[in-house]
């Protein structure tokens, strides 16, 4: 750091540096982009959430994810360059997390599918001794709250009114085809995707049944399923999301508060 006292806030250096050879960039980008993109989507609810408590909740979850993204992207390179200067095809996030917010049920279905997966994944990574163990050990405790939040809403809306039940079911059905991608193997992630998927299905089924919802029956893999985000192929709305997310940084390079 500097030798003279500073008056503005300075970012602390992180103990894991970009030069860490043990870090697999493919894996760090995949996890980092998932967190970054979902964080941005959740941030879009600011000013629009159905009730104040939900506004605060979604913003808090977005903040946790942004914190995870900053750590993960910093393992690969400069976090700002990676977030704001990459083109659409260079992003490695799941197509699930880039899906538009839709109505509140769509946002909750996306949160539910992703947070159950992320919690299982981080719990496994935290138990190992790989390069993501430190972050995962910290993030898994935050994600437990995200999952809990989503599951409570699934149950409340699914087992609520006829209208809320129908919309929750529709949202769960619509996003189902994006869930298979979460269990494609990622280079550098030392987890067993099939074991993870079995645990995910078990939990998702249990919660959906508790919510009086039907487990969607559509394809999660194969030709009719979606998911090539890890290869850089994204859905239509992602480009528009990136344009909004990146425009300030691109219009005013190097600007600071």
């Amino acid at each position: 750091m500097t030798a003279t006292p500073t008056t503005h806030a300075t970012a602390p250096t992180t103990s894991a540096t970009a030069a860490d050879p043990a870090v697999n960039a493919t894996a760090a980008l995949a996890l980092g982009d998932d967190a970054l993109v979902l964080s941005h989507r959740l941030g879009e609810w600011a000013g629009h959430a159905p009730v104040l408590e939900e506004e605060v909740a979604l913003a808090n979850i977005a903040l946790d994810l942004l914190g995870q993204a900053r750590v993960l992207l910093s393992l690969v390179g400069d976090e700002d360059e990676l977030a704001f200067l990459r083109e659409e095809r260079s992003f490695r996030n799941l197509q699930l997390v880039e899906q538009p917010n839709g109505d509140f049920a769509c946002t909750i279905a996306r949160q539910f599918y992703f947070s159950v997966h992320q919690h299982l994944l981080y719990r496994q990574l935290a138990a190992g001794d790989g390069p993501f163990a430190g972050l995962a050990g910290k993030a898994v405790k935050e994600v437990a709250y995200h999952q809990d939040h989503a599951e409570h809403w699934i149950v409340r809306l699914g087992d609520g009114t006829a209208e809320s039940h129908e919309r929750m079911q529709r949202a769960c059905d619509a996003l189902w085809r994006f869930t298979g991608e979460m269990f494609q193997p990622v280079d550098g992630l030392e987890v067993d995707p099939m074991a993870l998927e079995a645990l995910w299905l078990e939990r998702v089924t249990e919660v959906l049944e508790r919510a009086t919802l039907t487990v969607p029956s559509g394809a999660r893999t194969g030709a009719w399923a979606a998911g090539a985000g890890r290869q850089g192929l994204h859905t239509e709305s992602f480009g528009r999301m990136l344009a909004e997310m990146q425009h300030l940084h691109r219009s005013h390079p190097g600007a600071s508060w």
Binding site: M1, A9, T10, P12, V71, G137, K138
Partner: peptide
Amino acid sequence: TSDIEQVLHDHGMTTVSVVKVLA
């Protein structure tokens, strides 16, 4: 981070590096 830097600078430290640890 900047508050810690300030306090330790005031105590005569010329170089203060704050390292973030997760684990």
